[in-house]
Design a protein around this nucleic acid. Structure first.
Lengths: 251, 251
DNA sequence: TAGAAGCATTTGTTTGACAAATTATCGTGG
DNA sequence: CCACGATAATTTGTCAAACAAATGCTTCTA
């Protein structure tokens, strides 16, 4: 009978959901590790006592969650991905974009959340940064200065590097998801060309000021300068984005 | 030929991924709205020119993302869920738990992120609260006082209510995901009985102090008292949780 | 009218097959 | 011996048809 295990014992829930839970459990307990290759779908189905389409429903869900990946061919198959914040942030970005689309989230809310994450990130980075972090952050500042014609507000590598230097992966995940969402928005709605050069110049300058405070381990200054920088940047977003996103009164 | 559309035009990507994008697009553009019922899988498959198993792979992915839901029977089918932060927070909770399990995130990191979200949430709530918010928050404080035998640290309704009062749905989403994760942890690792009553008493008291500051629209005090409260609570978690999570040096 | 049996509808699952993509293999020619 | 191209093998991707299970509705009966 469908839904029965090897001993004929009916388990709770839908079969493909049990398979998802099973595989997640194998990863949680590290019996499955990043890079491991799962058996071919047909073997997996047989060993789990279910059909291949059912197994596939579970695999596709875990793929969408960036937990597994698959490819065809003899060296292909289904592999366990690295379990880290990057995959979650990627997923979160899509969810946030959808919330914006259906007006269950506004740009001011998103931007305020960015302030709430990015400012402490800068402060923490000043306290915890390594010399390697300083090197990486400065490189993103220099890169900005030599890049031409690209809207600086869509360049998130600096903020990403700062968040990484905070050594808090939860904070970094939240910040990344917001950064990626804003980049997607910036790609859709181009910043007016006339204000761009001036904005870019000031933004670069501010990036450098934040960087210097972090390099000097001056958390308070890093936070203050990050705040100034975000306030300028928000003005640019506010101008470029469609009116319907600017709908909360007190921000 | 497989992968061809109705006009014989091959589209890019895998079929089930195109279906996911299609349905997400229908929701983004509001041609599909929450509560809408999709055609039966077999009809949907026919109208998309694909097979039912392929449609199902897409539907199962969207179900796992809390975008769709399904049930059997004549009044059942596949329905568009409410697109809001709740579904995303639910998903995020599971992802955070997995990151903790595989040591790609530590409890101190998670807790620090909680401070970074919950303290501004309290400050914002003081500025933006409505009378209705005050009513709701006070009810959670009173509930705590009358509840017996439950670890107060696992009771997140107060913090949820504060985050809601902040009127920032992005912040509320982040906070909810952390709260839910911590509740799951608290359910797994019971707080020692001997310290519980005292912790509970103090925690209740602190909840009330935060509440009063929010009711008085005193943001600075609300933030300060929330900080004190979280510092106490963290000590309890730190004692109860397995040693392996306490592994960052400077927190 | 109330309850129970049967019916219709929809998702859940199975089986089997073929298509497409990709790499390994092997033979052939230089 | 090496390069290279055709071929075979492996794995995921897709399709087809059917039956099982769940659920609400209808209808028949007491």
């Amino acid at each position: 009978m469908a839904g029965d295990g090897v001993n004929g014992v009916r388990k709770a829930g839908k079969t493909y959901e049990r398979i998802i839970e099973h595989l997640r459990g194998e990863i949680s307990s590290r019996r499955l590790r990043p890079g491991d290759r799962l058996p071919p779908e047909t073997d997996l189905a047989r060993s789990l006592g279910v059909s291949r389409p059912t197994v596939r429903e579970a695999l596709k869900v875990l793929e969408s969650q960036n937990v597994l990946s698959s490819s065809t061919g003899p060296t292909g198959g289904t592999f366990v991905e690295a379990i880290d914040g990057a995959g979650v942030a990627e997923y979160l970005k899509d969810s946030i974009s959808l919330l914006l689309d259906v007006d269950e989230l506004t740009l001011p809310e998103l931007w305020q959340a960015r302030e709430i994450t990015d400012i402490p990130a800068a402060e923490l980075a000043a306290a915890r940064r390594t010399d390697q972090d300083v090197f990486v952050i400065e490189k993103t500042v220099d890169m900005d200065e030599h890049k031409e014609g690209v809207a600086i507000v869509s360049d998130i590598s600096f903020h990403r590097a700062v968040a990484e230097a905070s050594k808090n992966r939860m904070l970094s995940l939240f910040a990344s998801s917001i950064h990626m969402t804003l980049r997607t928005l910036a790609e859709r709605y181009i910043i007016p060309e006339d204000v761009l050069p001036e904005v870019k110049r000031i933004s670069q300058q501010q990036h450098r000021l934040v960087f210097e405070a972090i390099a000097n381990r001056d958390g308070a200054t890093a936070a203050a300068r990050m705040r100034e920088h975000l306030q300028l940047s928000y003005g640019v977003y506010e101008q470029a984005m469609p009116r319907r996103w600017n709908c909360t009164p007190d921000f």
